[in-house]
Computed example of a mutant assay.
Amino acid sequence: MTLLDPPTLPGPAPRRARPATARPVPHLRHERALLRAGATLVAGMDEVGRGSLAGPVSVGVVVVDATTRSGPRGVADSKLLTAAARTALVPALSRWGVARAVGHASAAEIDAVGIIAALRLAGQRALIAVAGVVGPVDAVVLDGSHDWLTPPAQGALFDAEPGVVATGDVDLGVIGTPRVHLRVKADRTCATVAGASVLAKCERDALMVDLAVEHPAYRWDSNKGYASDEHVSALRELGPSPWHRRSWRLPVGA
């Protein structure tokens, strides 16, 4: 280097690549804590279809007891999985735990009683199904911060109107009054809730694919009743079908 050459300065240190964020792995720690506290049967529940424009709202439930081992490999919140990954998990989930089920409330029932009461109805139907196998559960882990499963103390708004919604299959004496434990992001941390979300998603998706055969213009086979561009376009052109939630503000007309 001559006196006229500029000094050589050290360059910035190369940036280290950030490690990829690992997907959370659901576990049974929360469910096992409830079992240690005295519960005999603990259920994880999750819903799908709440924001759809058409089709039912569906609630999945998976029940475990003290003998249940860790969840199937790959189980996760259904929203984090591809359709193929969800479908591949169903056989293992169908053998895991002591009971599992999916309950539904139709679009007509949603119109009659509102989405929250319809969620409760679907959840009660799922609990009745598992109670037929193992009896009433003691505790339910529910995803989120709102308990939509426990009936309101003052009674449901439409209880005084017989025939408004078909609830003859819901015998609350069968399921008792399980204690609900709310947990935000339970579908990402609790294996039972994650498993319930996968089962509910797969079953509801299959229902929407079947309905798409009767109403192909809405493309429910691909959008599952949600507000995709082709679904909204068909609604504006054709109006709602019998499977649409007509009490909702549907994008119909020009």
Score class of each variant (00 low, 15 high):
residue 37 A to S: 14
residue 126 A to L: 09
residue 238 L to W: 13
residue 149 L to S: 05
residue 165 V to W: 05
residue 176 G to D: 06
residue 115 I to Q: 03
residue 125 R to A: 10
residue 3 L to V: 13
residue 174 V to W: 06
residue 133 V to T: 15
residue 139 A to W: 04
residue 109 E to L: 00
residue 189 T to S: 15
residue 248 W to G: 01
residue 122 A to G: 09
residue 118 A to D: 05
residue 3 L to F: 05
residue 178 P to I: 07
residue 83 A to R: 14
residue 120 R to P: 02
residue 59 V to R: 01
residue 172 L to F: 14
residue 249 R to S: 14
residue 94 S to R: 13
residue 177 T to W: 07
residue 120 R to N: 12
residue 104 H to C: 06
residue 126 A to D: 12
residue 199 L to Q: 04
residue 10 P to L: 07
residue 249 R to G: 09
residue 242 P to Y: 06
residue 164 V to W: 03
residue 104 H to T: 09
residue 111 D to F: 07
residue 45 M to W: 00
residue 232 V to G: 00
residue 251 P to E: 03
residue 147 D to T: 08
residue 59 V to L: 06
residue 124 Q to D: 08
residue 149 L to N: 01
residue 94 S to L: 09
residue 168 G to A: 12
residue 125 R to K: 08
residue 199 L to V: 07
residue 128 I to M: 10
residue 28 L to Y: 02
residue 207 L to Y: 10
residue 253 G to P: 07
residue 49 G to N: 07
residue 226 Y to W: 08
residue 218 Y to T: 00
residue 23 R to E: 14
residue 150 T to D: 05
residue 130 V to P: 08
residue 246 R to M: 08
residue 138 D to Q: 13
residue 108 A to G: 11
residue 144 G to M: 00
residue 225 G to C: 05
residue 133 V to P: 01
residue 140 V to Y: 12
residue 229 D to F: 01
residue 171 D to A: 13
residue 4 L to V: 07
residue 131 A to H: 12
residue 127 L to R: 12
residue 198 V to E: 06
residue 103 G to W: 03
residue 242 P to M: 02
residue 248 W to M: 07
residue 93 L to I: 14
residue 169 D to R: 06
residue 227 A to T: 01
residue 215 H to W: 15
residue 121 L to H: 00
residue 54 A to P: 03
residue 163 G to C: 02
residue 139 A to I: 05
residue 245 R to D: 04
residue 181 H to W: 13
residue 13 A to M: 08
residue 39 A to I: 04
residue 5 D to W: 02
residue 205 D to E: 02
residue 109 E to V: 03
residue 165 V to A: 15
residue 82 T to L: 10
residue 137 V to T: 09
residue 246 R to C: 13
residue 38 G to A: 02
residue 109 E to W: 01
residue 158 F to Y: 14
residue 12 P to R: 14
residue 199 L to S: 06
residue 2 T to N: 06
residue 114 G to Q: 06
residue 153 A to L: 10
residue 158 F to N: 11
residue 105 A to K: 11
residue 102 V to A: 01
residue 119 L to P: 00
